[in-house]
């Protein structure tokens, strides 16, 4: 059955749609679009839609990926056209491509993600100070964070190896921090964890909370990041 890879944005009110609800939301949008959805077998069939990586509730996604399976051959353009008109506010289809007959699952491909965080800078903070703080943060050999384990207890986990890059800017009173982090089943670093650890490592630089964006999702080969596009 034909598979389609979609790149979409998840912004505005749609930022607050949880991962589980997002599956339902796309399923309903596809139904409204009249797309011939393929369903999973079993007791509670659900549409075959698979996401690259869960996005934290509240974080905007600027270039998210999901695969969709249909029972009839449609062109990618037709799928894009139909689905664009039926997504709720904040979900925006950016591009759709038809997948080849055999293709690795998105979940298996995704290896890293790029993020951006923005917050109002404290009055006396300069760009140099932000850069310096990030430099010091990254120079730490190990960055331990607490994570809940399945047993209900807590484990310590070193996130430093999962931080591939991190930088900061200051403009118009807004501090903007960019980072590239390990994402996926072979290891996952959450941006919130990084920011909390970073904020704990320096004097307060921002007022209020950071607003978060995931700007991209990538596969990896060797040490390079690579696009998740795999289609024709």
């Amino acid at each position: 059955m034909p598979g389609y890879r979609m790149m979409y944005a998840k912004e505005g009110p749609a930022r607050y749609i949880s991962h589980l609800d997002l599956l339902r939301t796309f399923g309903r949008a596809a139904r409204r679009a009249g797309l011939p959805l393929a369903f999973t077998q079993g007791f509670n069939p659900h549409p075959k839609i698979a996401f690259a990586a869960p996005l934290g509730v509240g974080t905007s996604g600027e270039a998210e990926f999901a695969d969709l399976e249909l029972t009839e051959d449609l062109t990618a353009t037709d799928v894009a056209k139909a689905l664009s008109d039926t997504l709720p506010e904040g979900l925006r289809l950016l591009e759709v491509r038809l997948l080849p007959d055999r293709y690795p699952a998105l979940m298996a491909m995704v290896d890293r993600a790029s993020y951006r965080a923005e917050a109002k800078a404290c009055a006396s903070v300069t760009e140099e100070e932000v850069e310096k703080a990030i430099g010091e943060f990254l120079s730490t050999k190990k960055i331990w964070v607490e994570r809940k384990n399945k047993a209900g207890g807590k484990n310590l986990y070193d996130i430093r190896p999962g931080i591939f890059a991190m930088s900061g800017k200051l403009g118009n009173g807004i501090i903007s921090i960019e980072a590239e982090l390990k994402t996926g089943s072979s290891g996952n670093v959450r941006f919130e964890e990084v920011l909390t650890a970073f904020e704990g490592s320096s004097r307060p630089l921002v007022q209020g909370r950071f607003v978060l964006y995931r700007s991209g999702l990538y596969a990896a080969s060797e040490k390079e990041k690579k696009t998740l596009w795999h289609g024709r």
């Binding site: 009110p13 749609i17 949880s18 709720p88 506010e89």
Partner: peptide, 14 residues
């Protein structure tokens, strides 16, 4: 980000 089920408060539904 500090409350449970924030989708309750944002609207924008179909």
């Amino acid at each position: 980000p500090l409350v449970t089920k924030p989708a309750r408060y944002v609207g924008g539904e179909w």
